[in-house]
């Protein structure tokens, strides 16, 4: 009765179960990302549609070399599905995104403005830049006091490989119809004119962003411009600056909607199913594209 159980047997059982759990969890994770088990609960089983907007926001599907993200088409598609569902009385945009493409943000934002049912956004960890732009077009913005939001501004960048190729005795042969035709090429040093044009584009895009936020938030352009230093604001500071409406969580958003709609809330997820093929979209040309993609302007 007093035999000590060998410690290694106990640790072996614990370790064995841990490894089995990890393997099974990974298998389930894969199955769900294949799409067969992922959820597309767009149906009349709820009266408030939750549309997750997680990761960077793109116009096109991000490649497999990129981080996870969503496209404006996907979000717009879910917004349409939700608004066309007679059972859905409101939409909650569940935002957890650092930003992304300005065009994608504008497309989503314009779509939201056409919807006749209330749309509110709940910012989780982050709802910055392009994601914040989208949030401003909703009827109300909820964010956690520690959420990262704001970051009103534009960033443009590309990698300059000109010194690199020179070191390897590779030269860039240039034939252009105009001086600015190959501006942003990764294989040549940008001229002062190139830089000037790029900066002008960025400034103009920034103006669009500022004006959009000012209109959506009912704030003066001057005030928004003051805040538009690219600074990321914590939820609590964003509230103080009028960039969001309420500090709160999903529960607060639900409570708000319950009062607004005068009925109890049953949330339902609207999320696009991934297809099996999308998982294997490892396009070999992506590396080439990445190197010579030219400048990208993003709201991040």
């Amino acid at each position: 009765m007093n035999k000590k159980k060998p410690l290694f047997i106990i640790l072996g059982i614990i370790g064995g179960f841990w490894i089995i759990s990890i393997i099974l969890a990974a298998i389930f994770g894969l199955i769900y990302s294949f799409g067969n088990g992922s959820f597309n609960l767009a149906s009349s089983s709820g009266n408030v549609a939750i549309i997750p907007m997680h990761g960077a926001i793109y116009v096109n599907e991000p490649g497999s070399l990129s981080m996870d993200g969503v496209t404006s088409d996907q979000i717009i598609d879910q917004l349409e599905k939700a608004s066309n569902d007679p059972g859905v009385k409101a939409i909650i945009l569940d935002i957890n995104s650092p930003g992304g493409s300005g065009v994608a943000a504008d497309e989503i934002s314009q779509k939201i403005k056409t919807l006749e049912i209330p749309v509110i956004s709940v910012i989780r960890d982050s709802g910055a830049s392009a994601a914040y732009w989208i949030a401003t077009s909703t009827d109300k913005i909820f964010a956690n006091r520690m959420s990262l939001t704001g970051s009103i501004g534009v960033v443009g960048s590309y990698l300059d490989f000109s010194d690199f190729i020179t070191e390897y005795n590779v030269s860039y042969q240039r034939y252009v119809s105009g001086d600015l035709k190959d501006m942003g090429s990764a294989f040549k040093k940008p001229s002062s004119k190139d830089k000037e044009v790029f900066q002008k584009i960025i400034n103009k895009m920034n103006d669009f962003f500022i004006k959009e936020v000012a209109t959506n938030r009912n704030m003066s352009v001057t005030k928004v411009r003051k805040l538009a230093t690219g600074e990321v604001y914590l939820g609590i500071d964003a509230k103080a600056n009028g960039l969001i409406d309420e500090l709160g969580t999903r529960s607060d958003a639900v409570k708000y909607l319950e009062i607004k709609l005068n009925s109890s809330i049953t949330p339902v997820i609207f999320k696009e199913k991934k297809t099996l093929s999308s998982l294997f979209e490892l396009r070999t040309d992506e590396i080439g594209k990445f190197i010579n993609s030219g400048p990208s302007f993003e709201f991040k």
Partner: peptide, 9 residues
């Protein structure tokens, strides 16, 4: 050991 690995899924 068990719930942890599955929580992400």
């Amino acid at each position: 050991i068990i719930f942890g690995p599955f929580s992400g899924v």
